[in-house]
Simulated scan of single mutants.
Amino acid sequence: MSVRRLAKDQPESFAFNKKSEDEIKFWLAKYPEEKKASAVIPMLWIAQKQEGWVCEPALREIADRLEMPYIRVYEVATFYTMFNLAPVGEHLIQVCGTTPCMLRGSDELISVCKNRIGKQHEISEDGKFTWVEVECMGACANAPMIQLANKDGDHYIEDLDAESFEKLLDDLAAGKKVKYGPQSGRNASEPHGTKVLTDESLYDGSRAKPVTLPNTGKSDKAEG
Protein backbone atom coordinates (compact mmCIF):
# COMPACT_ATOMS: atom_id res chain seq x y z
CA MET A 1 0.00 0.00 0.00
CA SER A 2 1.29 3.44 -0.87
CA VAL A 3 2.01 5.96 1.86
CA ARG A 4 -1.06 8.03 2.70
CA ARG A 5 -0.56 11.55 4.00
CA LEU A 6 -2.80 14.36 5.14
CA ALA A 7 -3.61 17.13 2.68
CA LYS A 8 -1.21 20.07 2.64
CA ASP A 9 -3.97 22.68 3.05
CA GLN A 10 -5.96 22.28 6.24
CA PRO A 11 -8.75 24.26 7.92
CA GLU A 12 -7.91 26.10 11.13
CA SER A 13 -10.53 24.27 13.17
CA PHE A 14 -13.18 21.55 13.14
CA ALA A 15 -16.39 20.98 15.10
CA PHE A 16 -19.03 18.28 14.89
CA ASN A 17 -22.52 19.55 14.06
CA LYS A 18 -25.66 18.53 15.95
CA LYS A 19 -26.49 15.60 13.67
CA SER A 20 -22.97 14.27 14.08
CA GLU A 21 -23.10 14.74 17.86
CA ASP A 22 -26.26 12.61 17.99
CA GLU A 23 -24.48 9.86 16.05
CA ILE A 24 -21.43 10.11 18.31
CA LYS A 25 -23.66 9.71 21.37
CA PHE A 26 -25.13 6.55 19.81
CA TRP A 27 -21.71 5.01 19.20
CA LEU A 28 -20.19 5.96 22.53
CA ALA A 29 -23.11 4.25 24.27
CA LYS A 30 -21.91 0.96 22.81
CA TYR A 31 -18.65 0.92 24.77
CA PRO A 32 -17.68 1.11 28.46
CA GLU A 33 -16.13 4.46 29.40
CA GLU A 34 -12.67 2.93 29.75
CA LYS A 35 -12.97 1.43 26.25
CA LYS A 36 -14.35 4.46 24.43
CA ALA A 37 -11.30 4.57 22.14
CA SER A 38 -13.06 1.69 20.35
CA ALA A 39 -15.27 4.36 18.76
CA VAL A 40 -12.37 5.87 16.81
CA ILE A 41 -13.39 4.40 13.44
CA PRO A 42 -17.08 5.39 13.78
CA MET A 43 -16.05 8.92 14.80
CA LEU A 44 -13.68 9.23 11.85
CA TRP A 45 -16.50 8.08 9.60
CA ILE A 46 -18.92 10.58 11.11
CA ALA A 47 -16.42 13.38 10.55
CA GLN A 48 -16.01 12.31 6.94
CA LYS A 49 -19.74 12.09 6.26
CA GLN A 50 -20.14 15.59 7.70
CA GLU A 51 -17.38 17.26 5.66
CA GLY A 52 -16.70 14.80 2.85
CA TRP A 53 -13.17 14.18 4.14
CA VAL A 54 -11.17 13.89 7.37
CA CYS A 55 -9.09 16.98 8.14
CA GLU A 56 -6.22 17.24 10.62
CA PRO A 57 -8.20 19.31 13.17
CA ALA A 58 -10.84 16.55 13.12
CA LEU A 59 -8.19 14.00 14.08
CA ARG A 60 -7.20 16.15 17.06
CA GLU A 61 -10.83 16.65 18.09
CA ILE A 62 -11.43 12.91 17.99
CA ALA A 63 -8.26 12.21 19.96
CA ASP A 64 -9.35 14.69 22.65
CA ARG A 65 -12.88 13.32 22.83
CA LEU A 66 -11.71 9.72 23.12
CA GLU A 67 -8.78 10.59 25.42
CA MET A 68 -6.29 8.77 23.24
CA PRO A 69 -2.95 9.86 21.74
CA TYR A 70 -3.28 11.86 18.54
CA ILE A 71 -0.81 9.57 16.77
CA ARG A 72 -3.16 6.59 17.32
CA VAL A 73 -6.00 8.38 15.55
CA TYR A 74 -3.60 9.43 12.79
CA GLU A 75 -2.49 5.82 12.34
CA VAL A 76 -6.06 4.62 11.88
CA ALA A 77 -7.01 7.40 9.48
CA THR A 78 -3.95 6.89 7.29
CA PHE A 79 -4.21 3.08 7.28
CA TYR A 80 -7.78 2.66 6.07
CA THR A 81 -8.28 3.80 2.49
CA MET A 82 -11.98 4.41 3.11
CA PHE A 83 -11.02 7.68 4.79
CA ASN A 84 -10.48 10.63 2.47
CA LEU A 85 -7.48 12.63 3.65
CA ALA A 86 -8.12 15.50 1.23
CA PRO A 87 -11.28 17.25 -0.01
CA VAL A 88 -13.34 15.44 -2.65
CA GLY A 89 -16.07 16.48 -5.05
CA GLU A 90 -19.78 16.48 -4.25
CA HIS A 91 -19.97 12.92 -5.58
CA LEU A 92 -17.18 10.44 -4.86
CA ILE A 93 -17.10 7.71 -7.52
CA GLN A 94 -15.35 4.53 -6.40
CA VAL A 95 -14.81 2.22 -9.37
CA CYS A 96 -14.12 -1.45 -8.68
CA GLY A 97 -11.19 -2.59 -10.82
CA THR A 98 -10.73 -6.09 -9.43
CA THR A 99 -10.77 -9.12 -11.77
CA PRO A 100 -14.54 -9.83 -12.08
CA CYS A 101 -15.32 -6.18 -12.78
CA MET A 102 -12.30 -5.86 -15.07
CA LEU A 103 -13.45 -8.84 -17.11
CA ARG A 104 -16.91 -7.27 -17.40
CA GLY A 105 -15.68 -3.88 -18.59
CA SER A 106 -14.56 -1.76 -15.66
CA ASP A 107 -11.78 -0.39 -17.87
CA GLU A 108 -14.51 1.39 -19.87
CA LEU A 109 -15.82 2.99 -16.68
CA ILE A 110 -12.30 4.10 -15.74
CA SER A 111 -11.85 5.63 -19.20
CA VAL A 112 -15.07 7.59 -18.71
CA CYS A 113 -13.79 8.86 -15.36
CA LYS A 114 -10.47 9.96 -16.85
CA ASN A 115 -12.21 11.76 -19.72
CA ARG A 116 -15.01 13.34 -17.66
CA ILE A 117 -13.34 13.99 -14.31
CA GLY A 118 -9.55 13.83 -14.66
CA LYS A 119 -6.92 12.06 -12.58
CA GLN A 120 -7.74 9.96 -9.54
CA HIS A 121 -8.33 11.88 -6.29
CA GLU A 122 -8.64 15.21 -8.12
CA ILE A 123 -11.83 17.27 -8.03
CA SER A 124 -13.50 17.98 -11.37
CA GLU A 125 -13.57 21.59 -12.57
CA ASP A 126 -17.25 21.96 -11.64
CA GLY A 127 -16.60 20.59 -8.14
CA LYS A 128 -19.09 17.77 -8.71
CA PHE A 129 -16.89 14.69 -8.91
CA THR A 130 -13.86 12.86 -7.62
CA TRP A 131 -13.06 9.30 -8.64
CA VAL A 132 -10.76 6.55 -7.44
CA GLU A 133 -10.19 2.93 -8.41
CA VAL A 134 -10.75 0.52 -5.51
CA GLU A 135 -10.50 -3.18 -4.76
CA CYS A 136 -13.41 -5.64 -4.68
CA MET A 137 -16.57 -4.37 -3.00
CA GLY A 138 -18.33 -7.75 -3.01
CA ALA A 139 -20.81 -7.26 -5.85
CA CYS A 140 -19.02 -9.49 -8.35
CA ALA A 141 -22.24 -10.98 -9.76
CA ASN A 142 -23.31 -7.46 -10.74
CA ALA A 143 -20.04 -6.39 -12.35
CA PRO A 144 -18.95 -3.87 -13.39
CA MET A 145 -20.00 -1.62 -10.54
CA ILE A 146 -19.22 1.54 -8.61
CA GLN A 147 -19.97 2.88 -5.16
CA LEU A 148 -21.40 6.40 -5.15
CA ALA A 149 -20.74 8.36 -1.96
CA ASN A 150 -22.39 11.74 -1.36
CA LYS A 151 -24.61 13.57 1.14
CA ASP A 152 -27.36 11.01 0.53
CA GLY A 153 -25.21 8.12 1.69
CA ASP A 154 -23.17 5.35 0.09
CA HIS A 155 -24.83 3.34 -2.65
CA TYR A 156 -23.86 0.58 -5.07
CA ILE A 157 -24.67 1.17 -8.75
CA GLU A 158 -24.20 -2.01 -10.75
CA ASP A 159 -24.46 -3.64 -14.20
CA LEU A 160 -22.93 -0.55 -15.77
CA ASP A 161 -21.42 0.05 -19.19
CA ALA A 162 -19.83 3.16 -20.67
CA GLU A 163 -23.15 4.50 -22.01
CA SER A 164 -25.16 4.01 -18.81
CA PHE A 165 -22.27 5.39 -16.76
CA GLU A 166 -22.09 8.53 -18.90
CA LYS A 167 -25.82 9.05 -18.37
CA LEU A 168 -25.40 8.53 -14.63
CA LEU A 169 -22.76 11.26 -14.48
CA ASP A 170 -24.94 13.56 -16.62
CA ASP A 171 -27.87 13.10 -14.22
CA LEU A 172 -25.71 13.67 -11.14
CA ALA A 173 -24.20 16.81 -12.66
CA ALA A 174 -27.71 18.08 -13.39
CA GLY A 175 -28.86 17.42 -9.82
CA LYS A 176 -31.30 14.68 -10.85
CA LYS A 177 -32.15 11.67 -8.72
CA VAL A 178 -30.49 8.48 -9.87
CA LYS A 179 -31.43 4.82 -9.57
CA TYR A 180 -29.28 2.79 -7.20
CA GLY A 181 -28.54 -0.90 -7.59
CA PRO A 182 -28.49 -2.80 -10.90
CA GLN A 183 -29.04 -0.67 -13.99
CA SER A 184 -30.10 -3.68 -16.07
CA GLY A 185 -33.63 -4.00 -14.68
CA ARG A 186 -32.97 -7.06 -12.55
CA ASN A 187 -33.45 -7.15 -8.79
CA ALA A 188 -30.26 -7.56 -6.76
CA SER A 189 -28.18 -10.37 -8.31
CA GLU A 190 -30.96 -12.51 -9.78
CA PRO A 191 -30.23 -13.96 -13.25
CA HIS A 192 -30.58 -11.61 -16.20
CA GLY A 193 -33.96 -11.89 -17.92
CA THR A 194 -35.50 -14.03 -15.18
CA LYS A 195 -37.69 -12.71 -12.37
CA VAL A 196 -36.94 -14.97 -9.42
CA LEU A 197 -38.45 -13.01 -6.52
CA THR A 198 -41.94 -12.02 -7.64
CA ASP A 199 -43.16 -11.16 -4.12
CA GLU A 200 -41.52 -7.82 -3.23
CA SER A 201 -42.10 -8.38 0.49
CA LEU A 202 -39.37 -11.02 0.33
CA TYR A 203 -36.74 -8.33 -0.14
CA ASP A 204 -38.21 -4.86 0.51
CA GLY A 205 -37.94 -5.04 4.32
CA SER A 206 -41.68 -4.95 5.00
CA ARG A 207 -41.51 -8.27 6.86
CA ALA A 208 -38.87 -6.99 9.28
CA LYS A 209 -39.73 -6.89 12.97
CA PRO A 210 -38.67 -4.03 15.30
CA VAL A 211 -35.96 -4.83 17.85
CA THR A 212 -34.32 -2.72 20.54
CA LEU A 213 -30.63 -2.09 20.00
CA PRO A 214 -28.42 -2.87 23.05
CA ASN A 215 -27.19 0.06 25.17
CA THR A 216 -29.17 2.63 23.19
CA GLY A 217 -32.88 2.12 23.80
CA LYS A 218 -33.39 2.90 20.11
CA SER A 219 -35.49 0.69 17.87
CA ASP A 220 -34.42 -0.74 14.57
CA LYS A 221 -35.64 -3.50 12.29
CA ALA A 222 -34.33 -7.01 11.88
CA GLU A 223 -35.39 -9.70 9.47
CA GLY A 224 -38.22 -11.80 10.80
Rank of each mutant, 00 (worst) to 15 (best):
Q10N: 07
V73Q: 03
I117N: 01
R186P: 09
Q94M: 15
S20P: 11
F165D: 12
G127V: 05
P69R: 02
R116I: 08
C55T: 08
P182A: 04
I146C: 10
W27H: 13
G52L: 06
P57D: 09
F14M: 00
I123M: 13
V211Y: 11
S189K: 12
C101Q: 07
D204Q: 02
R4M: 01
S184R: 02
I24W: 04
L44A: 11
L148W: 00
K177Q: 05
E61Y: 13
E67L: 05
Y180C: 01
A7R: 08
A162D: 07
C140H: 04
G97T: 15
L28H: 09
L213D: 02
S184E: 04
L172Y: 09
C140G: 06
L44V: 08
E56H: 09
K221T: 14
I62W: 01
V132N: 09
G118L: 09
P42R: 00
E200K: 15
V88F: 01
P42L: 01
N84A: 13
E223S: 15
R207W: 06
N115T: 11
V95N: 12
G89I: 00
Q48D: 00
K167D: 07
A174Q: 00
K36A: 08
A188I: 07
P191H: 06
F165A: 06
A63N: 06
P69F: 12
S13M: 04
G205E: 13
I41D: 08
V112K: 02
T78E: 04
V211S: 02
G193M: 11
S111D: 12
S111E: 14
C136W: 06
V95I: 14
R65Q: 13
T98I: 02
L66P: 03
A208S: 14
C96D: 01
F14V: 00
D159K: 10
A7H: 13
S2P: 14
S184P: 04
D154M: 15
G205F: 14
P42W: 00
E51I: 03
K36V: 09
I71V: 14
E56S: 13
V134R: 13
G185E: 05
I41Y: 12
M145L: 15
